[in-house]
Design a binder for these strands. Structure first.
Length: 294
DNA sequence: TTCCAGGTAACGC
DNA sequence: GCGTTACCTGGA
């Protein structure tokens, strides 16, 4: 599908590298799809198409430049954050150098939290399929000239009203009950995500984990990718694996709490960002085993 | 067929 | 507290 060139707006990405494809395909978000030489997706309630023209420059469809900029985390000073990483940590520095253009997204908090609730014990293609089915069936249709039909992520009240059975039809399995209960809690106001955004990291994590189906990992993903908390450190099987190999090769028992404490001390106040570089590197190189020249 | 994957809640000790 | 186990689904 053709996107009218005249309606495209430019977004400068700054002096630190930026890699659109890597960022959208790094397990932070699951609904963008390749279209032409760019990506089509939805930010909040607006459909958008964005492509990387050159290393420091993006183009996006009309009126979305500022939204895209915010969503892609381009307002954050990545150079300054990377400068807080330990210079003598060869593994982390290698992970950053391997894909320096990776950024932490700033997604709307509800869709980020809800999507990660549906991610447990699922592989990325499954998460994508579930996410798209939920949008298609329960989300608001968003149209933009020149773009295919897309759907916003369904509001909490809509998913709460839909009920568990309908969500199971979307392939959620046992996650359906988790999502419905959490949607009810948010829709009723018993959990105010806006209030969570004002809490300190520890309180915010504590609040989110009271939600059904939200444990430490999913709450941390929501905080990192949906609340801009760069100190949130989700421990999933990939991070556990890469950190075990890099930092605890002889440890027999390694709790997630111990990994988080270690990460905070070693990587610093933006340890969540470090996590994303390590995660991406580990996943795409199989912890370095398939890294070219290694 | 059988196994298992980007986790959580519920249970047992 | 800490260690197991069940849980839906879909792909290998």
């Amino acid at each position: 599908m053709a996107v009218k060139a005249g309606e495209l707006h430019k977004v400068e990405t700054g002096s630190w590298p930026f890699d659109l494809a890597a960022t959208l395909n790094s397990g932070q978000v699951f609904h963008w799809h390749a279209m032409g030489d760019g990506f089509a997706g939805v930010i909040g309630r607006k459909a958008v198409w964005v492509r990387q023209v050159e290393p420091g420059l993006l183009e996006c469809t009309g009126g979305m430049a500022e939204t895209v900029r915010e969503y892609l985390g381009l307002g954050e000073d990545m150079a300054a954050m990377a400068a807080t990483f330990p210079a003598d940590d060869a593994a982390l520095q290698r992970a950053v150098a391997w894909c320096p253009g990776l950024r932490i997204l700033r997604q709307p908090s509800w869709e980020c939290l809800a999507t990660f609730i549906t991610s447990s014990l699922k592989q990325v293609p499954h998460i994508r399929a579930i996410s798209l089915r939920l949008r298609e069936r329960f989300g608001e249709l968003v149209r933009e000239e020149g773009l295919p039909d897309q759907w916003a992520y369904p509001e909490p009240s809509v998913l709460a009203a839909a009920g568990e059975a309908a969500l199971r039809e979307c392939g959620l399995g046992y996650r359906a009950a988790f999502l419905v209960r959490t949607a009810e809690t948010v829709a009723s106001g018993a959990m105010d995500l806006g209030a969570v955004a004002t809490m300190d990291d520890e309180k915010a994590l504590e609040a989110l984990t009271t939600l059904h189906g939200v444990g430490d990992k999913i709450a941390s993903c929501a905080l990192l990718f949906g609340f801009g908390r760069t100190a949130a450190f989700p421990v999933d099987v990939w991070i556990e694996r890469v950190m075990r190999e890099l930092y605890f090769p002889r440890a027999r028992k390694l709790t997630h709490e111990r990994l988080k404490t270690f990460a905070r001390r070693r990587f610093g106040r933006h340890c969540g960002v470090a996590q994303q570089f390590l995660f991406h590197w580990a996943r795409l190189t199989d912890c370095g085993r398939s890294e070219i020249g290694n």
